[in-house]
């Protein structure tokens, strides 16, 4: 069974781009437009990896991460931060990687493969 990636991102085009990128590499994708929806998607089925934007209208990426981390079922899911804001490397305690926008897609794919195969 292929690995599942949860993409949390409010910009529809960025979301679409990441979705295509991962699908083309053979991953399953689930998407959420904000932190709240992200938590809902988590409870529907545990993903193998999460890409997380930080600045979103409802519930920021940081708040999402904090809530996720309090749940023992989810706290070990690897997180990759993809955000354009300054201080993005500080927002999440132990991210697998942090990417600035626009992303280096080769580097992103390399990191994803390294993390979940």
């Amino acid at each position: 069974m292929s690995k599942k990636i949860l993409i949390i991102e409010d910009e529809p085009d960025v979301k679409n781009f990441l979705e295509q990128l991962f699908q083309d590499e053979g991953y399953d994708t689930v998407t959420a437009s904000d932190g709240l929806e992200g938590l809902e998607k988590l409870s529907e089925g545990k993903p193998d990896l999460i890409t997380l934007d930080l600045q979103m209208p409802k519930d920021t990426g940081t708040a999402f991460y904090r809530k996720m981390h309090h749940n023992n079922d989810f706290k070990d899911i690897p997180v990759i931060v993809i955000s354009g804001i300054a201080g993005r490397h500080l927002a999440v305690r132990q991210p697998v990687a942090v990417f600035d926008k626009p992303i280096d897609k080769e580097e992103l794919m390399r990191k994803v493969k390294e993390t979940i195969g």
Binding site: E11, D13, V14, N16, F17, L18, Q20, L21, G84, D100, K101, P102, I103, K105
Partner: peptide, 12 residues
């Protein structure tokens, strides 16, 4: 940055 990423996605 978001726009650039949208453009990058479009190109992809």
């Amino acid at each position: 940055k978001n726009i650039l990423m949208g453009l990058e996605g479009g190109m992809y």
